[in-house]
Design a protein around this nucleic acid. Sequence first.
DNA 1: GTCTATAGAACGATAGAC
DNA 2: GTCTATCGTTCTATAGAC
Lengths: 209, 209
Amino acid sequence: MATTDTRTQILDAAEHLFAEHGYSGTSVRAITKLAGANVAAVGYHFGSKAELMAAVVRRVVEPINAAQCAGLDELFARTPDPPVSELVEAFAGPLFDEMPAGDEGGARTSRLIVTILSDPAEEARSWTGPAEISVRERYLAAFARALPGLSPEELWFRMRGILAVTAVDRLEVYQQPTPGCVSPVAGEAARRWAITFLTAAMSAPPTRT
Amino acid sequence: MATTDTRTQILDAAEHLFAEHGYSGTSVRAITKLAGANVAAVGYHFGSKAELMAAVVRRVVEPINAAQCAGLDELFARTPDPPVSELVEAFAGPLFDEMPAGDEGGARTSRLIVTILSDPAEEARSWTGPAEISVRERYLAAFARALPGLSPEELWFRMRGILAVTAVDRLEVYQQPTPGCVSPVAGEAARRWAITFLTAAMSAPPTRT
DNA sequence: GTCTATAGAACGATAGAC
DNA sequence: GTCTATCGTTCTATAGAC
C-alpha cells in the first residue's frame, strides 16, 4: 500500500493532539513534529491552524452526522412514529460506532467533541457545519412526536442531555472511585448503558410546572 | 464598603476568562488587564498561572462539594435509605444553586467545570481536591443501596452521566434549533428539568447483558 | 510538494525600584 | 503590595531555495 501522504498524517496528528490538549493547548509545531512533517506543511496544506482544526472537525463529525441521518431514514421507512428508545439508539449510536480506527474506544474522539463543544472561541462557530443543524432539527421533530406534552424548551434541554452523556460521560476525567472499579469507556457495554440511561431519561414525564 | 483587593479581582477576572477561553486560551496578561492590575500581580499573589487556576477551581468547587455533603447528611438524618430522586436532587442541586453571584445563570461556572473536566493537562489533576472524591464515594454507596442489581460499573457510568448533564447541558454551545426556541440555561426551570431527566435515567432498570 | 530560515508578535516569569 | 522593564522562550505565519 502507498504510504500515507503528508496531509493525512497532519490530520491524524492534529486530531490526536487537539483532542488531548485542546485547540489553544496544541501548537502547529507539535502537530508537524508528530506527523513527521515540517512546520510549514500546515500552512501549505490548510492555510492556518484554525483551518486545520476545521478540517479535523469535519472529518470526525461528518460520518457521525451521516449515520444519524441514515438511521433516522431507516427508522421512518419502518414506521412513521418511532418510539423513543429507537430514536435514542439512532441518535446516540453513531456517536459510539463512527469512531475512527485507532481511537482508544472512542475516548479520543469524545474528547475532541467536548473540545469543540466547550470551546467558545469565535473560530469554533464555523467548525460545525449546517448539516449538523439539519440532522438535529429532524430528530427534534421526531422526538416531539414521540413525546407529546413536553414543552419545546424541555425537549431541547433533553436533546442536549443526550450529547452531554455520550460525549462527556466517556471521558476518563475522574479518578476511579474505588480500586478495581474501572471506567470501561470502551466497548459495547458503554454503548448499551448509554442507550438504557438515555431512553429512560428521554421518556420521563414532563416536569410539573 | 472597602474596594475589593487586587487578589480577589484577579480571581474574579481569571474565573471569567478561564471559563470563556479555557486554560491555555487565557493569558496572564489578559487576566491582569481585566482585573485592572499589573502583569506581575499574578506571580506575586499566586506564584504562577497554574497555581492561579488551582485557586480559581478551589473557590468554585468547594461550596458545591460542601452543599452536596450537607445535603447527603440531611437526607440520612431523615431516612437510612433515601430514594433515587432525593439522591439525585441532593447531588445535582448544588451544581445549580452554588453558583457565585454575577454568573450568568450558572453558565459561566458550568463552562469552567467543563474546562476542568475536559482538560487532560497534567496540571488539571491537582485542580480538584480529595474532598471531591470523598463526597463522590459517599453518593456512590448511597446510590448503590437505592439501586440494587446495578453493577458497580454501570452505576459509575450513570453517576458520571449526572455531572455530564448538569455541566455540559447548560452550555450555550448550540445554535438554536428554531428561532424562538431559546435555551434557557438559567433559572429554576433548568434545575427542575435536570432533576426529572436524571431521576428517570438513574432509575432505569439494569442493562440486560 | 517539501524544506530551511526567519520575521514579528505574544507568552510566562522575574528582578528591582518605589 | 504594586509597579516598570525586560529576559528568554515559544508561537503563527511566510518568504524563498530546492
